[in-house]
Amino acid sequence: MRSSAEASLHLGANTSDGARSVALGAMLLVCAVALGLVESWLLVWSPVPWLRIGLANVAVLVALACIGPRSALAVSLLRVMLVGVATGTLFGPGTVLAVSGAVCALVAMLLVRAAGARFSIIGWSVAGASAHVLGQFLAAALVTGSAAIVSLVPVSVLASLFLGIATGLIARPVISRVMPAV
């Protein structure tokens, strides 16, 4: 969680604010891991097995909006690592997919965020969800060496639009309550 401390120092915040950011970042990381686990249980009933709801992205969205990009990156990547350690799949092909998706999602959300007030949190979330799908499928195509997987991308991206809107709607009230505390 060093990076969240760095993020707030970078913003010129005082030590107390830095500590708050670290605490909030750590809390969001725990939320991200928990949401990811809940999602993996829900996955059993999913009609489309490879499609994920992206609940963990709620925590990343809150980190990005309330603390900053470095915290969001830390929450996102550390979540992947912790889930990898917990499930014993760290550094396997699944981790490659997850990291690729997470990085693409964060880059897309940063780009949309840079556009300022033109996009709300829903826009960030939708951009992140679509980019996550793209990153994950490109990594899957590379890992399996099969370009045929890419044919699943359009339908998954369409689904991610709805899921992105949904996670954005969940994140928005959380952000409006957490923001005053930072």
């Binding site: 949309v112 033109r118 709300s120 829903i122 939708v126 044919s151 359009p154 339908v155 991206v157 369409l158």
Partner: peptide, 29 residues
């Protein structure tokens, strides 16, 4: 509230995805 930018973003991604369906299908036929 969603902004106009949000709605345009959703629309653009949806259109690109729909257009990509026949393209990808043709490439792998």
């Amino acid at each position: 509230m969603t902004t106009r930018g949000d709605r345009i973003l959703v629309l653009v991604i949806a259109i690109v995805a729909v257009l990509a369906i026949p393209v990808l299908a043709a490439a792998s036929s």
